[in-house]
Design a binder for these strands. Structure first.
Length: 324
DNA sequence: AAAATATACAACCGCGAGGTT
DNA sequence: TAACCTCGCGGTTGTATATTT
C-alpha cells in the first residue's frame, strides 16, 4: 500500500503549540459546518489555518472538542483505567470509549505519568499487572512490601502477643488463601479453597478484610496466578467480561459440589450459596451480563466482608500493602 | 535567588487499517 | 487487484511548569 506524503512535511506549515487565534479559527470552522469536519486534509485550506490536517484533527479531538472533560481523574476513573488496561493493554482509544469525556491521549499521558509510577511503587508490573519479584527495586518504602510477606508479618505480630489459637487459625487461613491464589488458575479449586477458607472463618468467628477476597476475584477476572491488587475488582467492561466468560466456559464444574477435592468437601456447607451464584456461562458465547454482579453473591458470604474494630490491625496492614 | 532536575501534558511522528479509485 | 488516500492509533518528543538543590 502506498503511503501519501503527509502535509506536515510541507515547508511553511506551522508546528508546535496552538495559539488562541488558531483554536478559535478551528472551532469556528467546525461549528460553521455543524460539527462535521469532512476531510481533515482539506480543513486547513478551508479554514485558513497554516497547519496540517493531522495537527488540526489532534487539536480538535484532544483539546477543543466541546464534550471533553477537563480536570483531574477521579478515583473511579483511575480504577477503571487500570482494570481496562489489565484486560486489554495499551488500547488507549478503546479504554477512552469507557470514560466519558476523556481522550485516548489524555488517558495515555495519565497512565505514563501517574498510574504507571504508582503501580511500580506498589510492586506491581504496570505491563502485566502482576506482582513484581521480591528483589524488584523501586524508590519508596512500599517497594518490598509484598502481600504475602505483609500477611505473615501481620500474623507474626498478632502471635507476638501470646500464642493465641485464633491468631494461629488466622495465619493458617491466610496460608490457605495464599496457596489457593498462588497455585494455579483452576477456578473450581480456587472457589473450593475460598469456601474452605470461609468455613474456617466462620468456625473461628474471625474476620478478614475483604481485600484478600477481592484478590481472588481478580484472579477470576484476569487469570493471573497470584494475588492481584484490589483495584482490579472494579470491573464491568466487555473485555473483562469476555475474559471471565472464557474462564467460566473452561470451568463448567466450577461449583464446589462437583469438585472432588477435600477443600470442596469443606465447602459443602456453602453449596447452596455457590449454586446460586449464577456463574454458568452465557449461552452461545454471549457476553456475561455484569461481572461485578456476578461476583456479588460470593462477596456477600456470611462473615467474609465484616470488619470488626478489633481487626483494624489487619485492615491497616493489608490496605497499606495495596495502597497505590 | 538561580540553576538543575523532575513532572505533566500537549503535540508530533510513523505506521497500519480500511475505504476508494 | 493494485495504487492511492485518509484516518486514527500508539509511541515518543518537546516544552512549560513545579520542585529540589
Amino acid at each position: 500500500m502506498g503511503r501519501s506524503p503527509c502535509c506536515c512535511h510541507d515547508a511553511g506549515v506551522k508546528k508546535g503549540p496552538w495559539t488562541e487565534e488558531e483554536d478559535r479559527a478551528l472551532v469556528e470552522h467546525i461549528q460553521r459546518r455543524g460539527g462535521h469536519v469532512g476531510s481533515w486534509r482539506g480543513l486547513p485550506k478551508a479554514s485558513g489555518l497554516n497547519r496540517c490536517g493531522k495537527s488540526c484533527r489532534l487539536r480538535w479531538t484532544n483539546y477543543l472538542r466541546p464534550d471533553i472533560k477537563r480536570g483531574n481523574f477521579t478515583d473511579d476513573e483511575e480504577r477503571l483505567i487500570i482494570s481496562l488496561h489489565a484486560a486489554i493493554g495499551n488500547k488507549w482509544s478503546t479504554i477512552a470509549t469507557h470514560l466519558d469525556g476523556r481522550t485516548d491521549n489524555e488517558i495515555k499521558n495519565y497512565w505514563n505519568t501517574h498510574i504507571r509510577k504508582k503501580l511500580l511503587r506498589a510492586g506491581v508490573d504496570p505491563v502485566t499487572h502482576q506482582q513484581l519479584p521480591p528483589d524488584h527495586h523501586v524508590d519508596g518504602p512500599s517497594a518490598a512490601l509484598l502481600p504475602e510477606s505483609l500477611l505473615w508479618a501481620a500474623a507474626a505480630a498478632t502471635l507476638g502477643g501470646g500464642l493465641d489459637t485464633g491468631a494461629l487459625m488466622q495465619a493458617q487461613l491466610l496460608q490457605q488463601l495464599l496457596h489457593a491464589i498462588g497455585s494455579n488458575n483452576d477456578t473450581a479449586n480456587l472457589i473450593a479453597n475460598l469456601a474452605a477458607a470461609n468455613a474456617m472463618l466462620n468456625s473461628t468467628r474471625s474476620t478478614l478484610p475483604n481485600l484478600l477476597l477481592q484478590g481472588q476475584m481478580n484472579m477470576l477476572s484476569t487469570g493471573a496466578n497470584y494475588l492481584q491488587p484490589s483495584y482490579l475488582c472494579n470491573i464491568s467492561s466487555f473485555a473483562e467480561q469476555n475474559v471471565v466468560q472464557q474462564h467460566l466456559i473452561s470451568n463448567t464444574t466450577a461449583c464446589p459440589e462437583t469438585s472432588s477435592s477435600s477443600a470442596a468437601e469443606q465447602a459443602d456447607q456453602f453449596g447452596d450459596t455457590f449454586a446460586s451464584c449464577d456463574v454458568a456461562p452465557a449461552a452461545d458465547g454471549a457476553p456475561v451480563e455484569e461481572f461485578a454482579g456476578l461476583l456479588e453473591p460470593m462477596m456477600d458470604l456470611p462473615g467474609l466482608c465484616s470488619m470488626e474494630s478489633s481487626d483494624s490491625f489487619w485492615k491497616d496492614i493489608l490496605e497499606d500493602s495495596y495502597r497505590l
